[in-house]
């Protein structure tokens, strides 16, 4: 159950600045906490988020332990061409989620 939520405008004018919002379900366990038995809870976080627009990387973020659970990442880009945006989240324990969204530029 790691369905990401992506909010990309379906249509935009060429050259328009658009906002992209992403939200993903993840515990973001820091690796600093101990459990009730005093043992360290192993780190389990998303370490990298990237967004490709028509095959070109337009946004990249490295995530660390201070990022809260269920990271919400939002950024702006310029609408250039109609195409797909590919969002990738990768992290500890082979966590890898890819999601796409399409945009029509007029």
């Amino acid at each position: 159950m790691a369905r990401p939520l992506i909010n990309v405008p379906r249509k935009a004018k060429r050259g328009e600045v658009i906002e992209i919002k992403t939200l993903i379900s993840h515990i973001m366990e820091t690796g600093f906490r101990t459990n009730q038995m005093g043992a360290l809870v192993p780190r389990d976080i998303i370490t990298l988020f990237t967004c490709e627009y028509d095959g070109e990387e337009i946004f990249r973020a490295e995530l660390h332990q201070a990022v809260s659970a269920n990271p919400f990442i939002t950024f702006f880009t310029t609408a250039t061409n109609s195409g797909t945006m590919t969002f990738k989240w990768t992290g500890d324990n082979n966590f890898a989620v890819t999601e796409t969204a399409s945009i029509t530029v007029e």
């Binding site: 159950m1 369905r3 939520l5 379900s25 269920n70 919400f72």
Partner: peptide
């Protein structure tokens, strides 16, 4: 206010599934 920014939506979608 914004369902796509509200983390609870992740649970709502899981519930729908």
């Amino acid at each position: 206010d914004d369902d796509t920014a509200n983390p609870a939506t992740l649970w709502v979608l899981d519930g729908e599934t």
